[in-house]
Nucleic acid binder design. Structure first.
Lengths: 245, 245
DNA sequence: CGCGATTTGTGCACGCCTTCACAAGCGCCT
DNA sequence: AGGCGCTTGTGAAGGCGTGCACAAATCGCG
């Protein structure tokens, strides 16, 4: 706080202001606010921090602080302009352009991701599918042809793909990651249960389904051991919404 | 640090020691250590914190501090006993019993999750599938029958299911969560893009695929604006592995 | 025009987490 | 038996994130 970047021409998506360096925790919540804004549905022009915070499942003070990092897009006594705030968050997240994403590994999970319609409405379009297995190459999923992984460099360049999703088995993931990086991809979402090493400048996020379950399992174990204990209480401090992730 | 719980009978899974209350951040990493341990493959009896940290993609000091919270299972000058450490982490995570999980929503994503073979090897077995659509009820996926959601209470009781996975559309998720809670489920993994409200004592973790992509999109946007800037450098401080999640 | 109701933006304090740096402990070799 | 090298376990410091509580700002109404 009390930072620079507060007298500058904040604003108009297109004016490209000095890019704010938001805290990672804030960045991770912006998509949630955006989702909440889209789900409002009623024709309200403005929304209070309290209202939006409730819709997004967070504390209202936290929401205000998060939004304050983007600049002042609220009006005291009134709230936030829904359309303006939506546009601003989308701009910050880089969603004003529909980002091209490629998906590697059209197995069990990859197949589902390729067919997932939740991406289109949230700023992304899957433009290419790849796999190494000859048996899968040539298949059409959701109107999209599965190409051989060797075509990745060419397609990536043509479609200017910056984001890649890995849905291969863990054994193939590192090689695929290397291929993606070589092809110019600078952000990777990894579903394979393994650690990827990539050059600096490339972002990796991972989603491991078993890990999520194991974390829940821990809490189950904890809860069970508490109830078993003499005088143990059941609910510690779990709250109405555990975020994690 | 400098806590209690250090003279107690640490140990033997089955002795049920005073349950350590680990920091959340540590809990989230234990599954990663476990995965790294399983992936070692070579017959080494012990592993150093440096080695395991590298395999898990974290700092070695962090790993040591995390493990120190479980008690002292390492030997100075030698490292950690692989078998003992593995058993201990599995015990803490409550994975010594194969936990029963049910999955609600056998659509696009749910179908893939039901067929995902990565759960079995990591301490879980999916014992029941549910859906509300009559068209899907009766289908058999991976040898498992899809039941109608109305059967949930009965099946949950029979199989003593404590963990539920929601893979329905967002519009149905809250109702399903309520059903799960009523059926005695106390941990929920939510793939639907919405906020769930559950009573205290129930843990919820969420996985939103679009949010993960949006976070990556932000970093793409940031990187792009930096390179466009006069004198802008490309790589900020992204590192070899971005965790997030 | 002024006042009160409302809501944002933020200074501040607290707690959690990370990281460094090192003492304590263990095994091996001579 | 003694010393040396290696590795763990942890005190301490610093940074980050959260939440409270309140001042500043805006609108609407009399």
């Amino acid at each position: 706080m009390s930072e620079q970047r507060h007298g500058t021409t904040h604003g108009a998506p297109g004016a490209v202001p000095a890019f704010p360096d938001l805290p990672e925790a804030t960045i991770a919540r912006l998509p949630e606010y955006l989702r909440a804004l889209h789900n409002l549905e009623d024709g309200a022009e403005t929304i209070s921090s309290e209202g939006l915070a409730a819709a997004a499942g967070v504390n209202s003070a936290k929401l205000r602080k998060d939004l304050s990092h983007l600049g002042s897009y609220g009006t005291r006594g009134v709230g936030y302009d829904v359309a303006l705030l939506t546009a601003q968050i989308e701009y910050i997240l880089g969603l004003d352009q529909r980002r091209a994403v490629c998906l590697v590994g059209v197995g069990n999970l990859g197949h589902a991701l390729a067919g997932y319609d939740g991406f289109a409405g949230r700023g992304f379009r899957i433009v290419a599918l790849f796999d190494a297995a000859p048996g899968r190459v040539g298949e059409v999923i959701n109107g999209l042809l599965v190409r051989h992984i060797d075509e990745l460099p060419q397609v990536a360049a043509e479609e200017s793909i910056a984001i890649g999703v890995i849905a291969t088995p863990a054994s193939a993931a590192q090689a695929v990651a290397d291929d993606l990086v070589s092809a110019g991809v600078t952000s990777i979402l990894n579903f394979a249960p393994c650690v990827l090493s990539v050059p600096s400048g490339v972002d990796v996020r991972k989603v491991d389904l078993a890990i999520e379950l194991q974390i829940l399992s821990f809490h189950e174990h904890r809860k069970a051991s508490l109830t078993a204990l003499p005088g143990g209480r059941v609910n510690g401090a779990v709250g109405t919404e555990a975020v994690g992730s």
